[in-house]
Nucleic acid binder design. Structure first.
Lengths: 371, 371
DNA sequence: GTGAAAGCGCTAACAC
DNA sequence: GTGTTAGCGCTTTCAC
């Protein structure tokens, strides 16, 4: 079952030597031109070289170039799974930003598994990748330390730097606590008092912080915090968030069966919010009339679902741009400078959240302040 | 604004030389071990080398290796946009299959733009990528010919090879005509007679074929084909499908305003189907009671929406596996062998399609056959 | 302004 | 069984 040497006629590679010969110059002249050092080059020379390049359809080899210079153009992007629309959106935006500076993006689905993440990072390093964006807010980064010590530049996305992280780790993140806070406060202002919170089993820094923001808002509003309104998922769910969105239906159903059920729900991401909405409908209830729901992330899809989702948005483009800037070295990095970026989330008001029905709990809507 | 040479202490690269020296052998011995040629190696030697590798934390450089052998481990994947869940699912599956054989995947969002596709392909080639999967069923592949002539192995996904394609282009695709056919026939069997078809402006081979399948089913059922039931989108829509899903709402609304509106809709992908369902609801109607809808692709999301979408599934894993096999050279390729793969789609029955309400058109449901 | 030559880290003859 | 060595295609001093 030996592989045939298929398509035997690809022409042999055109090298810088060939171009030099065709143009009647030396390789260094060609190289100089290629690298923009043609300032004081005789016009004739430059022209001949350029012409030879076109005529021979010459493509410089980045492989050789990288071996020589140590500089590569490939960036790693590790996300839990691109099948999750949030990470797909990030991949989309990040790739676009990378492209602007001539970088290419190697996509890795880490599944939130430290072993896989480590394997990817080692593999990428081997392939000459020297910078990777890690989208996974696993609490520990220790599995990546060997690579970091070797010189890998790691940028953590959606995960603020915490105590114990290596000095060299830069992070880009939305302020998740604020995000949880504004989502919850919005519902509070709408008049809700029984507000549920739905999260997943997998413990990440960002999820913890979104919950903290929720609690803070509840507390500041003088509402009693109740643990029964927090649903955390089961222990057997898969790592890939998107699949666990089905499980979330159970969560909302459980919450709705409470003696005093919530009139509004905050979720830790839009996919969960979509699952929640489906669960609500399955109970014969309506969003937002019977229960309001607020998501997180503002994935592209969230404006498409029915009803369009009110959610907390992350400025992905800005975040991706910062990451690329760090990689390019356009930002000063020094031990005593705050080089991590924490951007502010924004509440996107659409139609999945409204005032509770008058018939329900206490206090009438208090809309004196607006988010 | 000069970039600081940040993190100045990464240790210098450990090379095969260092390992050889540490183990007291020559580089070729180390190389032999690395490449599995350690069959007749003295156990002691092998052990010493292995130990040196671990102790020095040696990582072979794929860059050097590729320069030498011409063999790379990076594959290109060009999709219209990962923000579109279908392509995200493909990227997920493809990356997983690639990983099994040690390949890495460079992700490119071509936006269905021939110029971008060409630029990506040239760039990938420069980076040493020698095989790319192209997910875009643009009718012509001519913009990629220069790279193909240079020796690039191109695998077209979701696009059967057509007249005029280069010999060396392999394709992997679902039988889109059959897909359109079974979707439509299913609705016909449920008793629908007025069946709409919603597609986008961008002309692709796969879309054309899905429509052809629809027409064939209509015709075989002896139902009159009506052009007014086909909605094709506007000319100003963006290239990225997902955004145009909003536009699709206009399409369904237009169809529903017809004097004799359709009782069922076939769409060319699940995102459109989701848009259609939202449009139906916006009109105060219900899916599937008032109008049935069938999607295409069976993206992960389609089982999550409400109601769960009845759709035509593409066996992505199988398709990705074939693509990787071709790249690995595990399939014989010869001019007279059919090396393209056309797999059969399958109808996934969920809840978005049902019988038309008795009150409506003619003939009662005829369920003598089942899809 | 242009060229000669060394070498990035590795593989694979070929020699012993 | 293991070592020596020639390059893969490029960049970059350093001469001229």
């Amino acid at each position: 079952m030996m592989a045939k040497d298929q398509g035997e006629n690809p022409r042999p590679r055109v090298t810088i030597q060939d171009v030099a010969r065709a143009a009647g110059v030396s390789v260094s002249t060609v190289s100089n031109l290629l690298n923009g050092r043609d300032g004081r080059m005789r016009p004739g020379t430059s022209r001949r070289v350029r012409q030879a390049i076109v005529e021979l359809d010459y493509q410089p080899s980045d492989v050789a170039r990288q071996l020589r210079t140590g500089q590569g153009r490939m960036l790693g992007l590790i996300v839990p799974s691109v099948a999750n629309p949030f990470w797909a959106d990030l991949a989309h935006v990040f790739e676009a930003e990378a492209l602007r500076y001539g970088y290419q993006v190697a996509l890795c689905n880490g599944e939130r598994d430290p072993d896989r993440e480590r394997a990817y990072v080692e593999d990428l390093w081997t392939s000459g990748v020297r910078a990777v964006i890690l989208g996974s807010s696993l609490p520990s980064l220790s599995h990546l330390m060997p690579a970091i010590r070797r010189g890998l530049r790691l940028i953590a996305f959606d995960r603020e730097t915490i105590e114990g992280d290596d000095q060299s780790v830069i992070s880009v993140s939305v302020d998740n606590r604020v995000g949880g806070f504004i989502a919850t406060r919005y519902l509070l202002l709408l008049g809700h008092r029984r507000i549920g919170f739905i999260t997943g089993r997998v413990e990440t820094i960002s999820r913890r912080q979104r919950l903290a923001g929720y609690q803070q808002a509840i507390h500041e509003a003088g509402v009693q915090f109740t643990k029964e309104l927090i649903w955390e998922g089961h222990s057997t769910e898969g790592y890939v968030d998107i699949e666990s969105a089905k499980l979330v239906k159970q969560g909302i159903v459980a919450l709705l069966e409470l003696p005093d059920p919530p009139t509004a729900i905050v979720t830790i991401n839009d996919i969960y919010a979509i699952g929640v909405m489906a669960g609500v409908r399955e109970r014969g209830l309506t969003v937002p009339t019977d229960v309001s729901v607020v998501g997180f992330d503002d994935i592209v899809l969230s404006s498409l679902v029915d009803p369009p989702l009110t959610t907390v948005s992350q400025p992905l483009t800005e975040m991706a741009r910062f990451a690329i800037d760090v990689i390019r070295g356009a930002h000063e990095i020094s031990p005593d400078t705050r080089t991590s970026l924490v951007v502010m989330p924004r509440l996107i008001v659409r139609e999945s959240a409204g005032s509770p029905r008058p018939a329900s709990t206490l206090a009438p809507p208090d809309t004196s302040e607006s988010a």
